[in-house]
Design a protein around this nucleic acid. Structure first.
Length: 492
RNA sequence: GUCCCUAUCGUCUAGCCCGGCCUAGGACACCGGCCUUUCACGCCGGCGACGGGGGUUCGAAUCCCCCUGGGGACGCCA
């Protein structure tokens, strides 16, 4: 399809120039895709693959396609599709095309099977699943590579009224080689490959077949996916060629492993992207963590999405698998909480508090609480936990803390503090600090001596933000109430 | 078992392509110190790696070969 463009003041008809102009006009023709199968939630590994695709597309102003690989009708669910969409949205990855469903395209696949059959590039196979299973087991037992023995390939095309699958007649002899954009040159002996099934007995097409058709038909020119697909690549290249499609570029990103170096799975902890949201992680922390797993830009550790779009490149993607390290993710999360905008954080915190059944409509402003807690919370869940004592009606006093600080010798100082606060005019951190010091002076006390009992009285615990900041956030009424209650506890 | 991929601190990685600037840099974790009303934050310091063996070279983390370790694939799953 010729591209329309205006040639202004240029008489040259050179095909070379035409080509150049076309390139300039289209800006970028990079087309990448993320193609999850909807048989569960979006997991960490999938998210990173999606992220790399997304980043590359955005950087080169290309197109990011989302395709749902649901040819396995039995295991695919709409809930999974929704969960994946939701997770991608949370991470800030929006696609330019899709979601496209393979289940909508069975006619096309059927047509391509027929085409290969008609061209003699595929054949019907009547071997039963049981027979194949037995042959596979025998081969494995005898230490041979289990591959289809070609029984029906040799038989020739005799039409029978029996259930059958369709197999691709793979070229024999020679080798299939491709240049991987991450791993470099990869080569397979064709004899290692067998005739893969492209259509099941029930008439549905299989993964390796549809992936090729879809990537080709959608104009995907860079296939960027996990390196567990390297072994599928030579077969897919053969299919591209048999179907008469141009072969795209490939880039295989290394796997993510658990602490024991085995493939990341549930037993290593949470693998679902949305589980991290629930655990109080910020999307920018997960994105930042995931991108640094396998990719680097010198010594830089912190990247905003905007920076990533500028800086990300396949050139700096490592070749070897990497271990998922929850501690570093936690560190990144605490970093983004520390440096985050309190207004935004308040909204996110409110969600967590509400899901805990806490009423955030009354009580001190969430933003002030967030500001006080940012430096000391690694997750929003932690922050919600610490925010509780500001929001609840009654302080839940820790017994050990009470036993140590809410004791008789601290009663007089606390009473003195109450007396001072009851008549104190200003109620901000700085002014309260003056009030507090006045009490210390008149009672000849050290800061810590009064601060800790006060903290326990107000927060129920020995740790937390600065004592005067706590009083400011709590407000006069709650502060005095809680102090009096603590005094009552000592007396009582 | 066969094939494919891979190999720098415990972990993520820089350096490797284009050998000398590497007594191998940064980050997480860990340990110690400082700051401090507490807990954190922060700051300073410490611990800690080129898997092994052969080559090539005046010189190798960097180039070549072998071994070993690790991962993946070998489905009428994707």
């Amino acid at each position: 399809m010729p591209l329309q463009y205006k040639r202004v003041g240029c008489q040259i008809d050179s095909p070379f120039l035409f080509f150049r102009s076309q390139e300039t006009i289209t800006m970028s023709n990079l087309r990448v895709r993320f193609a999850p199968s909807p048989t569960g939630y979006l997991h960490i590994g999938g998210a990173r693959t999606a992220l790399f695709n997304f980043l590359l597309a955005r950087k080169q102003q290309g197109t990011f396609v989302l395709r749902i690989e649901d040819t396995d009708v039995a295991r695919s669910t709409q809930e999974s599709v929704n969960a994946i969409l939701q997770a991608m949205d949370w991470l800030g990855m929006d696609c330019d095309e899709g979601p496209l469903y393979q289940s909508d395209r069975f006619d096309l696949y059927r047509q391509k099977v027929d085409q290969l059959l008609a061209e003699g590039k595929a054949y019907r196979c009547y071997c039963t699943a049981d027979e194949l299973e037995k042959k596979r087991e025998d081969a494995l037992k005898e230490g041979r590579k289990p591959k289809y023995d070609g029984t029906c390939r040799e038989r020739g095309e005799v039409s029978r009224d029996l259930p059958c699958v369709v197999r691709f007649k793979a070229p024999q002899g020679g080798a299939t080689t491709f240049h991987d954009r991450i791993k470099g040159s990869i080569s397979f002996q064709n004899d290692e490959l067998d005739d893969l099934i492209i259509q099941r007995t029930d008439g549905t097409p299989t993964y390796n077949f549809v992936v090729v058709i879809d990537d080709a038909e959608m104009g995907i020119n860079l296939v960027l996916r996990g390196d567990d697909h390297i072994n599928n690549t030579p077969r897919q290249i053969m299919l591209y060629e048999a179907l008469g499609y141009p072969v795209p570029d490939f880039a295989h990103v290394p796997m993510i492993l658990g602490a024991d170096k085995s493939r990341l799975s549930k037993r290593h902890g949470a693998t679902s992207v949305m589980a991290y949201k629930d655990m109080g992680y910020l999307p920018e922390a997960l994105v930042n963590y995931l991108v640094r797993l396998g990719w680097s830009h010198g010594d830089q550790e912190i990247f905003s999405m905007k920076e990533l779009i500028e800086l990300f490149s396949l050139d700096n993607v490592g070749k070897s698998a990497s271990v998922f390290n929850p501690e570093k993710l936690l560190w990144l999360n605490s970093h983004y909480i520390k440096t985050g905008d309190p207004a935004r954080l308040s909204e996110l915190l409110a969600e967590h508090l509400q899901s805990e059944g806490v009423d955030v409509s009354t009580g001190p402003a969430l933003e002030a609480i967030v500001a006080a807690l940012q430096d000391r919370s690694k997750t929003l869940v932690e922050m919600a936990q610490q925010a509780l004592c500001f929001l609840c009606e009654k302080v839940d006093v820790d017994e050990k803390a009470a036993a140590k600080f809410l004791v008789d010798k601290n009663r007089q100082p606390l009473e003195a503090l109450v007396r001072t606060l009851e008549t104190w005019k200003e109620w901000d951190e700085k002014s309260l600090d003056t009030a507090f010091k006045n009490v210390l002076e008149t009672n000849d006390l050290k800061f810590g001596k009064l601060a800790q009992p006060t903290r326990v009285a107000l927060m129920g615990d020995t740790k937390g933000p600065g004592i005067c900041l706590i009083m400011q956030i709590l407000g006069r009424e709650k502060t005095i109430d809680r102090l009096k209650e603590a005094i009552g506890r000592i007396s009582g």
